[in-house]
C-alpha cells in the first residue's frame, strides 16, 4: 500500500521536484520562504533551495504577480503563491489582462508560463473577503487555465503538470484539505518515475450506475461521502466525477458518465450565478439531451457573501445532506 501524505505535503513534493527539474522555476509569494509558508505548503524549500529560487514577496500582489508575468516572457517560470486566492482581486488587472492576453495581442509571439496558486475556499470562518472561489471568473477568460485538485494525489500530479505547462495556470487549492491525507505513491513506485496528472483529464473517483455527481475541488470529497450514504441508506449507486481541471475541460468523461446514469448534479462551493455548474449543465443538455431522465441540477454555496458565523457557514456550503436530498429528488 502506498504511503498516506497530507495534501500540503503532496504540493510541496511537487514544487520541490519542479525546482529540481528546471532551473528557471522560482517560487515567489508572501511568507513562502523564511516563514515556511502561511499554510506550510512551502515549508523547508527556502532552506533547501535558497534566496534565488524561493522568494519572500512584500504584500504587493499586483506588483509581484505582474513582475512574474514580465519575467516569464524571458523564460523564467514563476510559481506565485496567493496566501488566499481572494487576494487575486487586488492583482486582477495583471491576472486577467496581462497574463491572459499578451499572447493573443502579440499575435502569438509571447507566452506566459506562470502558475498562480493558493487556497480558494470557504468554510474556515474568515469572512467574505477571504473566502472567494473565483474559478468560474478566471475560467471565463480565454488564455487562462484553471485547476482545482480535490485530493493529495491530484494536487501533486497537477501542480507538476501546471508548472511545465507553457500557458498561465491558476491553481486553486483548499485550506480545508491541506491537512487531510491520501495515498500518494513514492516516485520509485511509478512507471515513469514521477507523478504527473495532465490538465484536461477528469477522473471518475467512484463508479456508479444511477446518477452522476460531478464537481471540482472539495465538493468532490463531499460528493463521495454523499455517494456512500446514497448507496448504504437508499440503494442508489452514484458515480462521482472530478473535473480536476476546469479549463481545459474534459467533456468526454462527463458525457460518458451521464450517458450511463441518465441523471446529473453538479456540486461546487462557488456561487451559483454563471458558475462552473452552469457551464456543465448547459453542455450536458445541449449534447445528450435524449439521454437525460431528469433535469440537470446544481448544488452551490448559498448565494450570499460568505458568512462568518461558524455553524451557519457550514450550512452555506454544499453539505452531504444537501447532495443526498437533491439526488433523491431525481432518482
Amino acid at each position: 500500500m502506498a504511503r498516506l501524505i497530507e495534501y500540503r505535503d503532496a504540493l510541496r513534493e511537487g514544487l520541490d521536484e519542479e525546482l529540481a527539474h528546471d532551473d528557471n522555476v522560482v517560487l515567489i509569494g508572501e511568507e513562502v520562504a523564511q516563514y515556511n509558508g502561511a499554510y506550510k505548503v512551502t515549508e523547508g524549500l527556502w532552506k533547501k533551495w535558497g534566496d534565488k529560487r524561493v522568494v519572500d514577496a512584500p504584500i504587493s500582489e499586483a506588483g509581484f504577480i505582474g513582475m512574474g508575468i514580465g519575467a516569464s516572457m524571458l523564460g523564467i517560470r514563476p510559481v506565485m503563491e496567493l496566501m488566499f486566492f481572494s487576494f487575486a482581486y487586488v492583482a486582477f488587472d495583471q491576472m486577467m489582462n496581462n497574463a491572459a492576453t499578451c499572447r493573443y495581442m502579440s499575435g502569438g509571439l509571447i507566452n506566459v508560463p506562470i502558475v498562480v496558486r493558493g487556497p480558494a475556499n470557504g468554510g474556515t470562518n474568515v469572512g467574505a473577503t477571504h473566502s472567494h472561489t473565483p474559478e468560474n471568473i478566471f475560467a471565463n477568460m480565454p488564455g487562462l487555465k484553471v485547476v482545482s485538485p480535490s485530493n493529495a494525489y491530484d494536487a501533486k500530479g497537477l501542480i507538476k503538470a501546471s508548472i511545465r505547462d507553457n500557458d498561465p495556470v491558476y491553481f486553486m487549492e483548499s485550506t480545508v484539505l491541506y491537512g487531510q491525507k491520501w495515498e500518494v505513491p513514492e516516485n520509485d513506485e511509478l512507471p515513469d518515475g514521477e507523478l504527473l496528472v495532465p490538465l484536461g483529464k477528469a477522473d471518475v473517483k467512484k463508479e456508479g450506475t444511477d446518477i452522476s455527481l460531478i464537481g471540482h475541488g472539495r465538493a468532490v470529497i463531499t460528493s463521495l461521502e454523499a455517494a456512500k450514504i446514497l448507496e448504504q441508506e437508499h440503494g442508489i449507486n452514484a458515480e462521482v466525477v472530478d473535473l480536476r481541471s476546469i479549463r481545459p475541460l474534459d467533456e468526454d468523461t462527463i458525457l460518458d458518465s451521464v450517458r450511463k446514469t441518465h441523471r446529473a448534479i453538479y456540486i461546487e462551493e462557488n456561487k451559483p450565478f454563471c458558475g462552473v455548474g452552469a457551464q456543465i449543465a448547459s453542455m450536458i443538455q445541449e449534447r445528450i439531451f435524449d439521454y437525460l431522465d431528469a433535469p440537470v441540477l446544481r448544488i452551490t454555496s448559498v448565494d450570499s457573501p460568505a458568512i462568518y458565523s461558524p455553524p451557519v457557514e457550514k450550512e452555506q456550503l454544499p453539505t452531504v445532506s444537501d447532495i443526498v436530498e437533491k439526488a433523491l429528488s431525481i432518482c
Binding site: M67, I69, G70, A71, M73, L74
Partner: peptide, 23 residues
C-alpha cells in the same frame, strides 16, 4: 514587449523583465 493598453499595467511587467535579466 509591448504596447500595453491599461494605464500603468505594464509597470510591474517592466520590473519582471528586469528580474528576468538579473535571474
Amino acid at each position: 514587449w509591448g504596447g500595453h493598453g491599461i494605464v500603468a499595467g505594464q509597470t510591474p511587467l517592466g520590473a519582471g523583465l528586469a528580474y528576468g535579466v538579473k535571474y
